[in-house]
Simulated scan of single mutants.
Amino acid sequence: MSLADAACAVLVLAGAGFFLAGTVGLLRFPDTLTRLHALTKADNLGLGLVVAGLALRAGSWTDMLQLALIWLLALATAATVAQLLAGAIRQDGDGTGSDGAGGPRP
């Protein structure tokens, strides 16, 4: 196993750990805004680490560029969706995203 293989494995496993942490935050945090924050931050970092690990194994510069563009697109979409959801939650007023009775809003 070469140094590049070991670095790739470490980066991909670290990325998977951040994905797991984001999922735990999604399930454990009390309100919607903290869940959204945990999920977007951890998943973006996790994807960045996975992309960095895969870039070490990429066969060419074009493959590395494609991986980087995928990550940048995911960053942009995650930020946009998080802003839209947070704005809708702020308009809701209570931060739970429900009708107050535990069910979804109509």
Rank of each mutant, 00 (worst) to 15 (best):
L3M: 08
A88N: 13
R35Q: 13
P106F: 01
L54S: 02
G100M: 07
V51A: 07
S98Y: 14
V10H: 06
I89M: 15
P104W: 12
T77L: 14
G48S: 02
V24Q: 01
T62G: 10
L84M: 15
L65P: 01
T77I: 15
D94F: 09
G87N: 12
L75D: 04
L84N: 03
S2C: 05
S2A: 05
Q66E: 09
V51Y: 01
G48P: 05
L75N: 08
G15Y: 01
L27K: 07
C8Q: 06
A68H: 03
A6N: 05
L39M: 13
P106G: 13
D94W: 01
A58I: 00
A7M: 01
F29E: 05
A6E: 10
C8M: 04
G100A: 07
V12T: 03
I70D: 05
P106H: 10
I89R: 15
A16T: 12
F29M: 08
M64T: 09
G59I: 02
G102W: 06
K41W: 09
T62V: 12
G48F: 05
F29Q: 06
V51Q: 02
L49Y: 00
L33I: 14
A78D: 09
L54T: 02
L85F: 14
V51F: 05
G22C: 06
L85V: 15
V50M: 09
A74H: 12
G46C: 07
G103H: 15
L73F: 10
G25D: 04
